[in-house]
Every structure is written in structure tokens, then in C-alpha cells.
Nucleic acid binder design. Sequence first.
DNA 1: CGGTTATGGTATCGAGTCGAGATTATACTT
DNA 2: AAGTATAATCTCGACTCGATACCATAACCG
Lengths: 195, 195
Amino acid sequence: MANDDDDEVSAEMIVWPLERLARLIRAREHEDALNPAQWEALRYLDRANGFSNSPGALTQYLGATKGTISQTVMALERKGFITKAAREGEKRSVTLVLTPKGKSVLAKDPWKQLAGGIDDLGGKTRRRLAKGLKELLAGELKRGKLKSFGLCASCRFFREKGRSADSAGPHHCMLLNLPLSAADSQRICVEHEPG
Amino acid sequence: MANDDDDEVSAEMIVWPLERLARLIRAREHEDALNPAQWEALRYLDRANGFSNSPGALTQYLGATKGTISQTVMALERKGFITKAAREGEKRSVTLVLTPKGKSVLAKDPWKQLAGGIDDLGGKTRRRLAKGLKELLAGELKRGKLKSFGLCASCRFFREKGRSADSAGPHHCMLLNLPLSAADSQRICVEHEPG
DNA sequence: CGGTTATGGTATCGAGTCGAGATTATACTT
DNA sequence: AAGTATAATCTCGACTCGATACCATAACCG
């Protein structure tokens, strides 16, 4: 194991499987009354915090355009997977919330089924796989000047507070100057900035 | 480095970046007069050997249906990226060949641009990344009972022959019982079976 | 206050994907 | 010769997608 850096792995040996894997999973996203675009939106909304469950944030996350996302959101609403509601204190915006039907269909997410294969991987491979993908994604985000959509724990605007009796939650966001519930701090955020 | 297997990496830390990376690259596949489906087909045809450059093989590679691929192929032909020709000795089938225009546009392939980011990765990470992705893809292929589309070198039907003056090439395929040019043996094949 | 500009979302359009199913032509089998 | 399998195409309806125009609300500024 001394010369672990020999035997160069060509970029193709990473790009080709990556590309085909993504394509094949996508091909299975036409089942269960949803299609790939709708799956992507549903997955995002399941992970987004209260500042981020809007069509605009979804647009940025997916690297799409507002018009396209508007259509997809309407399809999801029509099919009963999400509901729309007015956003508190911002009449232009809207909140998108999963219905019970929306939450339950996520169990059949084709990407989620990949998790089984991941469990069979060795610890070293899992660690390096996560690290490599994280860096590749970071590069792609930088190239497209896109947002990171990370969790509070890695955000420069996050201030963790000790437990308190405050019902609004123990933490605080310095950017929006708002209290953060413990649950919300575990979800991805449009405003996230690493730091 | 002794306890390299501690600190479990959750499946989500692999699936989420993987999913978003694939989505973001896909979002950039609308440039250059092509769209994602057409990019996928063009990339495949650039890598397929002489037995595998048909609509049917492309259909299997992408996990799609014949009708869909037929449309995409016609679009690529209409746009001048590929040409269609009759297949030798099989009148039902067709060969799809990249035009010079098709070959040159591949330089702008959004997936290819990922290769730069891969070069920045460390050797260990690159190795494990390739290994992990290969295994995840193998699992996906098994689940969907799909073909591997590997190279001759890993195929159980391949017989490497010594150099000869035979113009048809030095190698041989035991399945189709045909000679194989050195060039073709370096391209992916519908008939590939690991072993 | 009024005007300009920015922002969040929708309406509409045309090109194209996608799976499903029917159709045509060729090949193989018995 | 009849039946079946295979390679590809055609047609259909539902949907994605970017582009553009549009509307409402918000922010800013003199």
C-alpha cells in the first residue's frame, strides 16, 4: 500500500460509470405516476427548510428556469403530491409542502434504492466516494456560480445557541436574523454559504 | 489511519451529491444545438464498436424504448451529427456513424468538462471513486437485468491473438465468430459479457 | 409621494423526449 | 409455407424545457 498513488485512474473510468448510472436511474423515474423532473422537485421539497420550500429556490437548486419549475410544481399539485400556500410576510412568494401522499411516495424513489448498493461498499470506498463526489459537485457549483444548498452546521450565518425555553427554537440565522428550529437547521437552505 | 472504517458515511452523503451533480450537468446539456438525450446518444456512438453502433444497442445502453431512440436518432441525423447506412449482412439493421461535425462537437460535452475536476482529485480518492461507481453501476445493471457494455479485454468471448499480417485485425470474438480490429476491441460492445 | 428597477411567479409557445402500441420489413424455424 | 422473432419506424398523447412576455409585489430613490 506504499505506492497507493500509482496506477493512474483515468477520468473516463469515473465519468463513464457516473454518466450511465445517472442515465439508468433516470430511466426508472417514469414509474409511480411521476416523471424525472417531478421526482427531482419532490425530493428537494422533502429536504428543504422553511426558507427554501419555494419555486424560486427549487429553480436554483436544479439549475432550471422559473417557467419550467412553475409547470412541474403545478403538475405535482394537480396530482396531489404537494400543496401550495401563501408565504408569511411575502405576498409574491409561495410555500410548497408535501402532502401525506407526497411523503409516502418518496419511499419508492429510484435514487433511494441505490442506498442498498452503497451499504455493500467497504468503509474506505464509501468515505472516498463521498469525498470525491463532494469535490466534483463543488467544482460544478463554482463553474456555474450556483448555490451550495448545505446545512446550517456548515453555514457561516449559523449561530448555535444553548437550549432555551424559547418556543421558536434554540438556534439563530445571522443572515435572515430569524430564530431556527432544530428541525429546520437539519434541512438544506437556499441561503447557505460555506464558511 | 488504523481505524479507517470508523466514522460511517451515510448513504445520503453519497446519493445527494451524486443526484445533484447529475442534475446540474444535465441542465447544461441544452447548449450547442443539442439536448440531453441527443448528447447521450452521441457519446455512446463515439464509444461503440462496429457491432454496437445501431439504434437497438443504443436503446439497451440507455435503458430506453425503441421508439424514443428512433426519434432521437432522426433528430441527430437531421442536424448533421450522424449518418445512417445499411448494415453489412443484416438488412433489418442500420449503422450509425458520427460525422466530422458530430466528432468535433463532442469536445464541448458537459460531462467531459468534469474531467478537469477529476484531475484535481488525489490518487486514492480517484481510485476509490472509480471502484465505488463501478460497483454501484454493476448493482444497477443487475437489478434491471441490463447489459454491461464493457470492453473486449474483460469479455469472456474475447481471444487475443498475436500480431499477424491479416488486415482484418489480430483478435477474435468467439460469440460472433468474427475477427476484431485492434481499434474495435477498445470500444464498448452490446455483446459484452464479463468473465 | 411617484417613478424606476428588481423579484417571485404564471401564461403561452414551439421543439423535443418519452413510453405505448401498431406497423413494416427482414430473418429464422419447423 | 406458416409461424414467430427481430430491427426499426410511425403515430399518439402527456410531459419537459427554455424563451419570452406578462403580472403583482417589493425595494429603492429622488
